[in-house]
Amino acid sequence: MKRVAILVETALASGRNILAGISQYIREHDDWSVFHPTGYMGATDIAGLVDWDGDGIIARISDPAILKNLKAKNTHIVDVLGNVQKSPFPLVKCDDRKIGRMVAEHFIGNGHRHFAFLGFSSERWSFERQEAFGQSLEKEHGQVSLCHLNPRHQGPAHWHRNLDHVASWVEGLPKPCAMLVASDQFGPLAMKACERSGISIPEEISIVGVDNDQSFCELCRPQLSSIEPNHTRVGYEAARLLDALITDERTSETLLETPPLSLYTRGSSDTMAVSDPALVKAMRFIRQEACNGISVDHVAESAGVSRSVLQRRFKDQLGRTVGDIILSVKLRRARDMLAFTKISIPEIAERSGFNYQEYLNYIFKKHLSTTPVRFREEAGR
């Protein structure tokens, strides 16, 4: 039986998914005895391994002190973070540069011309996402506006200081603007800063996070779009690599990067960039009221223009009609309730503004080539 220790925090989805990948590998091989000391942020304190003696360790090595103490254990080690430069240990991590490029492509496809990044400057994973994001945009769109938080100043005690800092920054951003937040954990902060400054999401600032952590994404209003980096694969590959090291299999692998799976588009970035003030008002009104039985005339009134002018501007700037946008918001509301709740389908039809289950069925078949029942089954509900 191979004795393996795991130093991976579990407070965030990234850590929990790494553990899921390790668990998958263990189920397939069934010859590991795992030691996972828990504590603040899950399990990152090397002190938990003082009396442990085993064959290998999988760890998120976040700073030089942890690296130094792990070296002293004199055992096989695989890093699943890569925050410390010139580490002697093999590294398995998500491809942070591909993540940055994927978000840039999403924003460009939505017609954005101004871009921003919120994250850490001292964390390698955050910096690589920032750098690739900026490089993908620099040639055509110029510099990305940056806002960096101090990783030591996280948690409730620093919330208001960070909020003041981010709110001041977002107020000065050109609008509309597209923002990548380096981790979903920053999503609520960025959205609260926009709310305090009277900035509409996604009409004035469109936001995408990373990790697809449902606890953060669904807490946000509108819900946060996010990249799924595939940390589960990171955990699985790290376990596979550590197993090879323990059994003395020859391997030249020193760096493995898993590509991101997908960008899950939710309400925080599901819109085209517009600078027309009337369209911003119209889009905000549609997002808030689409499921309440509104008409084109209601939208025109909220935007302060005539029906014909509004329709023309929608077609010219968005390539879609007002009715198209209303329908897309109602459809996304129905999809979200099917995927993330156990609300009955007739009630979902009513809440999303389709009124009757039969009409909801018709819309799903026409626009998604499926039914609400099948959609819910595929979403695992």
Rank of each mutant, 00 (worst) to 15 (best):
T265Y: 07
D243S: 08
E203Y: 06
T258M: 08
E257V: 07
T271I: 14
L224Q: 10
D164I: 11
S225I: 03
M272V: 11
S268Q: 06
S225D: 04
D243F: 01
R152Y: 12
P156R: 07
L242D: 05
S225W: 05
V181W: 05
A239F: 00
I199P: 05
T265G: 09
E204D: 13
P259M: 01
L149Q: 03
D276K: 12
C220Y: 13
C194Q: 07
S206D: 08
T271K: 14
S262W: 15
N212Q: 13
G267A: 10
G187Q: 03
E195W: 13
T232V: 11
L241S: 01
Q223L: 08
L219F: 14
E249S: 13
R233Y: 08
T232S: 09
D164E: 15
T254A: 12
E253K: 15
T247N: 10
P260W: 00
R161E: 08
E253C: 10
C220E: 11
H158A: 00
N230D: 12
R266W: 07
D243K: 01
L242E: 03
I201D: 04
D276F: 09
I199T: 10
S215Q: 14
H165I: 05
I201S: 03
G187K: 02
D276Y: 11
D184C: 02
A273M: 13
G198C: 08
A238M: 01
I246K: 00
L219R: 14
L173T: 01
S183A: 13
T258A: 07
T271G: 12
G155F: 04
K192M: 15
T247A: 08
Y236C: 02
T251V: 10
H160I: 14
L256Q: 11
A238H: 01
L224R: 11
L255E: 09
N162L: 05
E237K: 07
T251F: 06
S226R: 04
C194E: 06
T232H: 10
G209T: 04
V181K: 04
V181G: 03
P259K: 01
Q214V: 10
E253N: 14
Y236F: 12
S215H: 13
D211I: 09
I207P: 05
S168E: 15
A182D: 12
C194H: 09
Y264T: 15
E218Y: 08
L245D: 05
T251M: 07
L263I: 02
L163K: 02
S215L: 15
W159H: 10
L163T: 01
C217L: 10
V210S: 00
L219W: 14
L242W: 00
L224G: 05
A193F: 05
L263Q: 00
